[in-house]
Design a protein around this nucleic acid. Structure first.
Lengths: 159, 159
DNA sequence: GCAAAACATTATTTTTTTGTCAAGATTGGT
DNA sequence: ACCAATCTTGACAAAAAAATAATGTTTTGC
């Protein structure tokens, strides 16, 4: 179970733009160099993010990329959704009524697990905005710490 | 972000064994047929699970696979860990001190996100046992429902 | 003891995912 | 107008993951 390379590096590139001052922008070579990936690869990621409306780009000599929306209004679950098909795969889409051809219709014991994980991850990511990832001091650690504490509580109650 | 095919089908095969009565076992062709995968593929999954000590197998005409431990003592995070390398990838292993070659050392804004998701998913899976997945009525839905409710509470508090 | 049924293990092929290349299009500066 | 820097986009190559094939080993029943 993992974050795909596209998801991870796409998100990293966005964070770079979130760290810019108003009016600044970054070129593809600049972005690529900082992430240790090729310019071509960065280009594809930025193209996805551009198409989805997260960034704007200008061509020409003084061109580059910059955020299309304030960092505080960009939630991570939306970003991830664009960089890959979905936050979690849903092999059992019949659970949500989309697909009926799954061999596990009827008695699929693990379907609730897959769907439940999907919603937990989506929920956690939806609570994080790009703005929380700028600079070195992030408020993300605190949030995850609190969520983990709650999980421990659940466990103690033997749900 | 997704569960790999190996993780999903391996877990499904285990659930099949968890649904057996004491003394019963299932052959590879039986397991494969119920999951809609090839016998060879099921064989590899069961080999992994066997090597990790989750199942036992007997050869010969009356052979087959059965659980090596009570279903109530098998937690899903352990199963997933065996079927893939880890519950979530850790591109930034320098965070835990394992790898220092990551280009993002020093100012990696998304590292807490990756590590935090890792722990959330691991934590959720550790609360589910194979026993909770037998039959049609599972207690997993209820657990996830409660966790999701807590996430909503967090959101309301604007963590 | 022999044959059939079943698991064990390694190698190969296929598919999917990632990453790269190259040609085109747009802008800014001179 | 031209050139250089930049983004855009489709085709292609490499790597990883998944699935299959093939060969070997063990056990049961006769």
């Amino acid at each position: 179970m993992k974050i795909s390379a596209q998801e991870e590096y796409g998100l990293r590139c966005l964070v770079q733009l979130a760290n810019l001052q108003p009016g600044e922008s970054l070129t593809l070579p600049q972005i690529a160099e900082r992430e240790g990936i090729s310019t071509a690869n960065a280009g594809k990621l930025m193209w996805l993010l551009n198409k989805a409306g997260f960034v704007h780009s200008t061509r020409g000599t003084k061109g580059g990329y910059f955020l299309a929306r304030p960092a505080s209004e960009v939630r991570l679950n939306e970003v991830i959704k664009v960089l890959d098909q979905d936050v979690l795969n849903k092999h059992c889409e019949s659970y949500t009524g989309v697909l009926d051809s799954c061999v596990h219709n009827g008695d699929c014991g693990i379907r609730p697990v897959i769907v439940g994980l999907h919603e937990i991850v989506e929920n956690a990511l939806s609570q994080i905005t790009l703005a929380q990832l700028v600079g070195t001091e992030s408020s993300v650690d605190a949030m995850f710490h609190q969520i983990k504490g709650i999980h421990r509580t659940l466990e103690a109650q033997r749900i």
